[in-house]
Design a protein around this nucleic acid. Structure first.
Lengths: 165, 165
DNA sequence: CTAATCTCAGGCTTACTGAAATAG
DNA sequence: CCTATTTCAGTACGCCTGAGATTA
């Protein structure tokens, strides 16, 4: 029938979200993580997703470690870590070596190619961050970051190193 | 062998995350949405998850609408909406009525029980918000909310009604 | 014998794609 | 004939549980 029948909202805008939801920072963060994922996909896929990069950063910053130690540090389940490391190993970014002192353990080591991949990924993260926080001035970005960090540190004490506030 | 062998990090703390990741608001938001989910689970499960509540709020604020209109407004895929509405209908919180003017459409209506359920859910959301933002003072919470809202409005123009900044 | 580490199988949620059925 | 709405089937991800295999 008529095309505009279902959209009498030229001013009302049929895309507005319920205000009672917009009031909650947790709701906004949920939607913004969706946006961040979209931006990251747009910037180009190097085959690495967020958890992969997290693991690479862990290996780079804290050196070769067992899978259990990675799991504890990152809060990634040990069983999920298996396939992540399979991916990284297949791509040549990390290797598993048996620990001779405790043969139950593997020692995971970052390769040279892995370091390169991490550097590239951090470049993408930087551009994504710029796009995501585009409307904020530098001091506002710092403000946002500081508030989020305080909230996070409150719920996950120990995950934020002393040196980093 | 020795129990403390794998934890020589009394000061180093084996749970610290890589600083280069903590620098990114998007990383912190990702971890905080995990925390929010945990808090919500802790507060008690009324069987409704976040998307269910979002749909209820949509119906309450904008009245009876077609599934397509809900999908467009909330950015929830139409195919995913099907099972959500199945859940809500089964719980007696919403009903589907054939649209007589366009029999392809259903008109989704919020029931009285649905309004009650929404009120309860918003109560849970309020307590979750309090727990999540515990370390922040009221004016800091307002600051955080304002910053997140501006970022969100920038990426999803039209989703934030004019009346709501 | 008990416990720790790694692995596999599988469930459940969110987000998405493609296609069928019905109706305009 | 082509399009719109709802629905279903199936994929992939993140998060979680439970259990097996190997080793301490």
């Amino acid at each position: 029938m008529m095309a505009g029948m279902s959209a009498p909202e030229s001013t009302e805008d049929g895309r507005a979200l319920p205000e009672r939801l917009l009031r909650y920072p947790s709701f906004l963060m949920l939607r913004l993580t969706r946006e961040a994922r979209r931006i990251r996909a747009f910037l180009g896929d190097d085959g690495l997703r967020a958890p992969h990069v997290t693991v690479l950063a862990c290996l780079a910053d804290f050196g070769p470690t067992s899978q259990k130690a990675i799991s504890d540090r990152l809060g990634i389940d040990a069983s999920d870590l298996v396939s992540l490391l399979d991916d990284l190993e297949r791509a040549g970014y990390a290797t598993r070596r048996r620990d001779d002192h405790d043969r139950r353990r593997y020692t995971v080591v970052l390769t040279t190619a892995g370091k390169r991949a991490l550097r590239r990924s951090m470049g993408v993260a930087e551009r994504m961050n710029d796009l995501l926080l585009e409307p904020l001035r530098p001091e506002e970005r710092e403000q946002l970051h500081g508030l989020l960090l305080r909230v996070f540190a409150h719920h996950d004490p120990g995950r934020v190193p002393e040196s980093y506030r």
